[in-house]
Design a protein around this nucleic acid. Structure first.
Lengths: 398, 398
DNA sequence: TCCATTAAACTCGTACTCCGAGCATAAGCC
DNA sequence: GGCTTATGCTCGGAGTACGAGTTTAATGGA
């Protein structure tokens, strides 16, 4: 190595570019063959030989014989190396938390899932953070120095490493960095809707789309605009709060502080209002329960109203962003399924006329529950396969 | 050169990366010195020597002595080469069209401006396209093979190389590619609001912002979300039609085909409605005229209502995208100036509470009328300084 | 069974770019 | 006129990708 003394290697430009490209391709298309990867990246066979040899020597890849596909010398499948790097993806939700390790191909290992004791997660947040930290410690024990990053998906508004909490308008911030305290690992934090959108864009229903819009209804509506596989997360990471644009009735104030939020028209709270019932404690399960009782007219009418509001808003966002495809997650899927005609009419009516000839497809998410975890893993893998991170990893072998 | 016979050189990866970076820097910071550019790009002095020599030899840059700044060997200012490449930026508006050539530093040369004879541009569109094409021919004559690309900013919805026209709901498409027919030049087409946003993000009020939101009010409202200097133009280039999201009254149908469009609440048409006047022929000049008569109470009240609708919508978009800064163009500037208190109150009230502590600054555009032209030039310069385009240019010297 | 065909991998020499180290240069400052 | 300072230039070397040519491991037909 050229680095001497305390001088850092300064990451020569473009040094690990091709390696990064190959590893990124493996995360997006697990099980891709070496020959197919070379075609995709337009690498010459000599470059392919060179880069795979290097990645093999660095314990990043292994090659296993690929099933033969006709004549010609058989190629190999590129797989993560058994002693290669690993990331830890975690997800913090209202109902509990989950975690999984992931290898360079994005495959989730050792999935674990725990429920909170309390329904009010803010009440037990300190305990949950401690539990997450214990999860990090376990993973560190299991994988040792193969573990290179921790990625956390949070159900809530996120700014940098902080969760923005609004216990009725205080908006205090909760620092999430204690999750990795002492481990020496980098922590990546993202909103769960944003990260599930990343998963859809990388390996799900929006795979291959240059611009994709992902929307997920749980309590309120969240989502993200994804451009070339990266979410538009804004200046502080709080981008994608589509629930808080004023698509709704201006007379109503949202807990977020703004008025007329779309949020208030979409979820269980909106259903309750249409049904003249009190605001539910847990709007998500409340809505889930109602969606089992669609044979009752008042319920199906309320669901239709909410579905129409959802579709109209989606159409507005399609006008604004012109995505190639829209993906739906959470309650948006059963809502649409409950009133497909209402949805498609409202969607079409909300589009600018020229979009109507070939409107962007609205697809159900393929990942659903695992989306946020997969997206968190994807972001962490991006992080550890960046050029500078690979240069750092390679120092171990010098 | 390694290319032999008809085989193309296949643009070796990373080959022109640093050259592209240097030229991009010169477009963003015209007049930057060689030493400052090297610092910015973290290039070693040897690399700097090498890359500047190469760019000089290829007629891309010249160096002129920089004014001395204290001790030390004086450096040079990097300037476009007098025989270097040039792009043609054009702008097609309701009122007329404009054009200018631009060198690698983005400086506009030979600005020309022509007014349409008719107020209804669709009536004379064929003639206008012919005039634009004549402009291309003139530029080609003047600059010869230095002219490498034509970039067209269009006041209207754009999909790929087509202008979407809605003469009362037909939405026929007008192919703009005849503008470069026969010239052999690539044509880049973009919406004017999008391109003026690019200009703000590159060299204007949003310079340096990672995520910026640009909004411009003329007839209706247009804009764009800009991430790292690139506009989120969507799948077909029609992204940024913020005027057609349903922030407004659902009972009103917009000429675009959707309902409740924000467009209808912002521009001269909205002012006319508040004043119980008939819909103006030319909402832009109508609004301009009213903004000169703010001492009349009904007018100032109408302006305040429109300003509030503008600010509320902006706040919603800030919630959604979390930009670092918002820039305003067109009538949005005098609208805000006419009722600054109304604007800031509505803006703040529309934000999610946690944004209110330090809301994104809302700034007037620095480029205003020249924004679209500058943005068009910037996009064209990106195109001709891409790695493959530089490889192609360098073939001239082999 | 053997051999032509095919697709892919490997080897070798080369081109390109960037870098570090060392040296040279042109200004200001005393 | 020398010292200081910031910058530019030269040189040798490293790293990566490529083209051309060769080798390899499969299929499929005679």
């Amino acid at each position: 190595m050229t680095a001497r003394g305390g001088v850092k290697p300064a990451a020569r430009r473009g040094q690990w570019q091709t390696a990064t490209d190959v590893l990124g391709l493996i995360a997006r298309q697990p099980g891709i063959t070496r020959a197919a990867a070379a075609r995709e990246l337009r690498l010459s066979t000599s470059s392919t030989t060179e880069v795979t040899a290097r990645l093999r020597d660095l314990h990043l890849l292994t090659e296993t014989p690929a099933p033969s596909q006709g004549r010609g010398r058989p190629t190999t499948v590129l797989r993560p190396h058994p002693r290669g790097p690993v990331v830890l993806a975690m997800e913090l939700r209202q109902a509990g938390w989950r975690s999984a390790a992931a290898t360079l191909d994005g495959v989730l290992l050792d999935q674990q899932s725990t429920r909170h004791r309390s329904r009010r997660p803010d009440a037990v947040l300190a305990a949950v953070l401690a539990a997450l930290r214990a999860g990090v410690d376990r993973a560190k024990e299991q994988y040792g120095d193969r573990l290179l990053a921790v990625s956390l998906a949070v159900a809530g508004t996120v700014r940098e490493d902080h969760l923005m909490q609004a216990p009725t308008l205080g908006w205090n911030t909760v620092d999430l960095s204690p999750v990795v305290a002492g481990s020496g690992l980098p922590l990546l934090v993202g909103n769960d809707a944003t990260l599930s959108g990343v998963a859809e864009a990388r390996t799900g229903a929006a795979a291959g789309a240059g611009t994709a819009l992902h929307l997920i209804v749980e309590v309120g509506i969240g989502g993200t605009l994804i451009i070339d596989g990266s979410p538009a997360s804004g200046a502080t990471g709080a981008g994608g709060e589509y629930g808080h644009i004023p698509f709704g009735d201006r007379r109503r104030t949202c807990p977020c502080g703004a008025r007329g939020c779309w949020d208030l028209e979409i979820d269980g709270r909106a259903l309750a209002e249409h049904l003249h019932e009190p605001e539910p404690d847990d709007p998500y399960s409340y809505a889930e329960a109602l969606l089992q009782r669609l044979d009752e007219r008042p319920i199906s009418r309320a669901v239709a109203k909410v579905t129409a509001a959802l579709a109209t808003g989606i159409a507005g966002l399609v006008n604004a962003h012109d995505p190639e495809v829209v993906t739906l997650g959470g309650l948006a899927v059963p809502l649409r399924a409950a009133a497909p005609a209402v949805f498609s009419t409202a969607y079409s009516d909300g589009l600018m006329t020229f979009h109507r000839a070939s409107p962007p497809a609205v697809l159900d998410s393929t990942h659903q529950q695992t989306g946020a975890l997969r997206g968190a893993a994807a972001v962490a893998l991006d992080h550890i396969t960046s050029e500078s991170a690979l240069a750092h990893w390679s120092d171990r072998f010098s």
